[in-house]
Nucleic acid binder design. Structure first.
Lengths: 155, 155
DNA sequence: ACACTACCGTTGAGGATGTCAACTATTGGT
DNA sequence: ACCAATAGTTGACATCCTCAACGGTAGTGT
């Protein structure tokens, strides 16, 4: 294992100093993949995935989002929101309320059970976030969030 | 459209100030989704996707990665690397060379055609990266890359 | 009032991706 | 010489993405 291990370590080292490792697109993809994997296992014990957690979070935060707004915000196809809300509704965590200002639209709101589950799930995701942030020095963490927000909401 | 447009804008505004919009996992996912979409359209004209571009980049950079190293670095299942390298090889852009130090392993190297295509594709991705970075003030761009690298390569 | 265009949610289909288990050939260690 | 572990590959299955179409509603203009 010593030879193979070293050969592999050398290969990885060369990859980290390659041009690709300086590519912002790639760094975003890899950082996201790591964060996603951690979030996935943390949310699994609550029967949630990052997507359903996001919908539940907005519903529990009294944002009163329509499904279309959810689709735009989460960068998903509207048809995927249908499936996510279907499942959350079946579990009694959210409800579809008719939007009083537009009868075509549904507003997604969390039930009491949904808010309770979200509160529990949020503790798990906060732990994941702390672990993520541990990779950067404490005095930089605030700026990291700010920069990412600018990337995520530029337009 | 004025009423609907405003109602939607209000909804989006409330989403941007919601707790989710401060979640690092979510920000990474959204920033990555935006960057991925841009990279996808930029690479399409070269017949590449972000993944095949990444493999080609490492092969053209004389990193001499084995397929397993590619899988780890790109956070993909080894079986997905097979399909990517298959396609690049079929197009004459890369070749599988037997690893002299381990006959089980293949080292992926770019052909001349592969290097030429990569050079052209890189111009497109650089343009995408510039557009991405335009979202943050110039004096912060260096730090953004550094922070993302820490997130992507922590372990 | 009317026609017309655009939109919301939903369904369904097809392709692309993710995940996992099994298999062969090879390796390193005992 | 044996044996557990590893690299690449294949195949199966689930999930996800993307798109087109539909009924119901909304806004616009006439």
């Amino acid at each position: 294992m010593s030879t193979a291990g070293k050969a592999q370590a050398i290969g990885v080292d060369r990859m980290r100093t390659s041009a690709l490792a300086r590519d912002l697109n790639f760094l975003l993809a890899r950082a996201n993949a790591l964060a996603l994997a951690a979030a996935n296992t943390a949310l699994a014990e609550h029967g949630l995935k990052p997507r359903s957690y996001s919908v539940l979070a907005l519903a529990a935060d009294d944002v009163l989002p329509t499904q279309r707004e959810l689709a735009e915000f989460l960068r998903l196809d509207p048809s995927q929101i249908v499936a996510i809300v279907d499942e959350l509704e079946k579990r009694g965590l959210v409800e579809r309320h008719p939007d009083p200002s537009d009868r075509r639209a549904n507003v997604v709101v969390a039930t009491e059970a949904g808010r309770a589950l979200f509160a529990r799930a949020q503790k798990s995701t906060r732990a994941v976030e702390r672990a993520l942030k541990a990779a950067v020095p404490p005095e930089e963490r605030e700026r990291l969030g700010e920069l990412l927000r600018q990337l995520a909401f530029r337009e």
